[in-house]
Every structure is written in C-alpha cells, then in structure tokens.
C-alpha cells in the first residue's frame, strides 16, 4: 500500500483552501463536516430519544390547552377577537419546542463532547478551525430545534390551532429562534465546568418557560416584572411566533427578529473564542 501518493497533494490543497485568507486561523470553510459527523452519530444512537423530544410541549398543550382550557374563558388574540385557550398557548409551545431542541444539543450534548467524548480535541487536531466547529455544532443544534418545531407545527395545524395563513412563516421564525438559542446555549456551555453548573441552565430555562407569557398574557404582572420578562429571549420568540400564527403583524416583530440575530452573533463569537482558549492554548 502506498501512504504517500499523488492524492495527497490534492488533499492538502483542499485542507488549505482558505490559506492566507481573512480568519484562516479560525475558519477553514468546513462547518458542514460537523453536520456530517452529527448524522453518522445519530444513525447509530437511540434515535427514539431524539425523535421523541417534541412530545413534551404536546403534553403541555393537551393538559393545559384542553385540560385547564375547559375552565378558562374570554381569551382574546390581543386585538380583541376571541380565540380558544389552546390557540393562545400553541404558538408559545411552538417557540418552546424550537428552544428545547436547540438547547438539548447545544448544552448537554456539547458539554459531553467537550469534556468526556473529546470530540473537539479530535476535530481541532485536524485542519478544522474553531469557527468551523462552533458554526457546525450550532447548526446541528438548530436543526434539531427546527425538527421539533416542524413536528409540533404538524400536530397543532392538524388540531386547527393556527388560524392565520401567516402561520406558515412560523417555521422560518422557529429557525431563527432555534439558531439564537443554540448559539447562546453553546456559548454558555463552553464556559461551564461541571454537571452542577450545567444544572443551572435548567434553572434558567424553567422560569423562562413558565413566565414568558406562555400560559397567560403578561398584563397580570406589575410593570417592572413585565419589563424584565420582555428582555428574555423566550418572550421575544413567543411574541414573534404568536404574532404570526394569530396573524397579527406589527413592526415590533422586526425587533424580535433582530434580538435573535444578536443572540446568534454573540453566541458564535463567544463560542469560537472559548473553544480556542480551551483546545488551542
């Protein structure tokens, strides 16, 4: 067998594709390979665990939308038109699905790969750069968030909970939401050192889920609490998606979208920096 042959020249040429270009020290233009790895790993994992991740919001929809919903009347869409309670919480749970999917992969799974699986050690001993790894992993997490959002969307559309045609845009909006959470999730995870610290992520997620106007309008809170909640990403996501599924559009939605763009950029920046510090110092 020949270990050194002509093919190596082309191999090196590919590996050096971005040689000398801007950011060549952190980016070699191959984040897609991280997704490939994700698919290989998924193939031989317990895919049921991944596939079933979207059921939790469905249970919430059933228990609250239909269960408690029986005891709740007078829900309106914000413009005064009456809607069912299930129609009110469905978009919130859609945003939550996107968030959950993105967060599962970008926090616990990343944490595992970082500290036990040594996956990034392997990646970064090749010609991959840290931005390749960050972008690849975040995209992978985002795909999971998107998959959950689509799954949930299929369920709620089937139940007639999406009254407006604008609801179609809820899917791209969910991509944005998932991307933002994946990016920040991985950024934060890269700074955490042990399981106990990781648990605190859950401790932030739960209140965000419970208080972001998921189950009732913010108006029941005093004003300073409302301000605080409006600064939280899930509230931004829920408002964006609820506006779309109920067909009530306004300029504030642009603000919500920009909020997520900022999350994406910030998360990528910190993740790349931290990966460099952890694996290349």
């Amino acid at each position: 067998m020949s270990l050194i042959n002509a093919a190596v020249d082309s191999a090196i040429a590919i590996a050096e594709k971005r040689k000398g270009k801007l950011g060549a020290g952190v980016y070699s233009g191959r984040p897609n390979v991280v997704l490939e790895r994700g698919f290989y790993a998924l193939k031989s994992s317990t895919w049921m665990v991944v596939a079933s991740g979207f059921v939790e919001p469905v249970f919430y929809l059933l228990a609250f939308g239909y269960g408690i919903g029986q005891f709740i009347s007078g829900t309106t869409d914000g413009n005064g038109s009456p809607i069912t309670y299930a129609q009110f919480i469905a978009p919130a749970l859609l945003a939550t699905s996107a968030m959950n999917g993105a967060i599962y992969d970008s926090t616990w799974n990343v944490f595992f790969k970082m500290h036990f699986g040594k996956v990034y050690n392997g990646m970064l001993s090749t010609s991959m750069g840290t931005l390749d790894v960050a972008l690849g992993e975040i995209s992978w997490a985002l795909l999971r968030g998107l998959a959950y959002a689509i799954g949930f969307m299929a369920v709620v559309t089937g139940m007639g909970l999406i009254p407006s045609i604008w609801g179609l845009l809820a899917i791209p909006a969910a991509v944005l939401v998932a991307f933002g959470f994946a990016s920040v999730g991985m950024g934060v995870t890269s700074y955490l050192k042990n399981h106990q610290q990781m648990q605190w992520i859950q401790f932030v997620m739960l209140p965000m889920f419970l208080f972001s106007g998921t189950f009732y309008p913010l108006s029941i809170y005093p004003e300073f609490i409302q301000w605080f909640i409006q600064a939280m990403p899930l509230w931004q996501g829920i408002s964006l998606i609820r506006g779309l599924t109920l067909g009530i559009l306004d300029w504030a939605m642009l603000g919500h979208a920009l909020y997520f763009v900022a999350m994406i950029i910030g998360g990528l920046f910190f993740t790349t920096r931290r990966l460099t510090a952890l694996f290349l110092r």
């Binding site: 594709k17 790895r37 790993a41 996956v119």
Partner: peptide
C-alpha cells in the same frame, strides 16, 4: 469518537481535513 463506528471514525476524521 465514541459515538461513531470504526470506519466512520476514519471517514469523519478525513472529512475534517476536507
């Protein structure tokens, strides 16, 4: 990579090099 099979380890690692 513990999540991958033997040949996948080689494939994915090679892909990292492009």
């Amino acid at each position: 990579d513990r999540e991958l099979k033997v040949w996948e380890n080689l494939m994915v690692y090679g892909r990292y090099f492009g």
